[in-house]
Write a protein that binds this DNA or RNA. Structure first.
Lengths: 140, 140
DNA sequence: CACCGAATTAGACAGAGTCCAAACGTTGGT
DNA sequence: ACCAACGTTTGGACTCTGTCTAATTCGGTG
């Protein structure tokens, strides 16, 4: 089944399941993100989608990514001052961030415990906790 | 002593202590950041410094902030997709991030423990761990 | 006061992301 | 088959953050 999971007809079903009208462009963008499971930036996604033929415009990529975000189909990861990365993994997880290469790696959140956090300010609720472990090669 | 800590002559001493030549502009920028102890963006700092009289240019603000970063006089906080925040607090600490207002609040790191992190990839060392607790007002 | 290196500057530039009004595609009704 | 209506896409202009560069200014030293 694995090789079917990211087929375009299945992606259409996934999009509908999240209340998204599966247009041609949206399916191509979803395909680019999900079929490789990496952390991609918007410009990288635009390049991937238009690799063979011109499929979408920049505006549509941004529109679509924001729509996917809103519908919780993907997450955004903010670690690089220059650009946002989009994360196809919506399970609770954190990240290793290689400060030299910019590479992002997932850390499963199931075993992670954070203790000692102070109480939240009055009338506030936690939306989520992001942990970023900045790493660097020891071979200087 | 508290009211003297952020006086310009004392800031000059602090800058020298970090190996920074204390010029007029650098002292004004340091004053803007440290005297209010907030998390400020570059454009906000530029505006503050030039509030009364024209003290510095945009280029100098960016040059200086990067110099301060390099000399570990301040830290940068990356949570907002649009801009970097500069943090006058260099003690180990984490942040509450109010996703509605963009407001940042410090969390002292002394009591915080994180368990369950996987081993680092081979030949890698931890540079730092950033925890961001995203919060939102419950009064929708 | 002339010199020299360091610091500052204005303004051009680059890149990410948004906005807008026009064009396009799909659907449903007649 | 046609049309209307709505949602989607699009190019291009625009904004904003941050960098770069080449020219100028500043501060200290002999």
């Amino acid at each position: 089944m694995l090789q079917n999971k990211y087929r375009r007809d299945n992606l259409a079903v996934v999009l509908r399941g999240h209340g998204i009208n599966p247009t041609h462009q949206r399916i191509e963008i979803a395909h680019a993100i999900f079929s490789r499971g990496e952390h991609l930036s918007a410009d990288r996604i635009l390049a991937l989608v238009n690799d063979r033929a011109s499929e979408t415009s920049k505006a549509t990529v941004y529109n679509t990514l924001n729509l996917f975000l809103e519908k919780k189909l993907i997450r955004e990861v903010i670690v690089d001052p220059n650009k946002v990365f989009y994360d196809p993994n919506t399970d609770p997880h954190h990240h290793f961030y290689n400060v030299d290469t910019g590479e992002l790696t997932d850390i499963d959140a199931r075993n992670i415990r954070v203790t000692g956090l102070p109480p939240l300010p009055r009338g506030m609720a936690t939306e989520g906790v992001d942990i970023i472990v900045r790493i660097r090669s020891t071979a200087a």
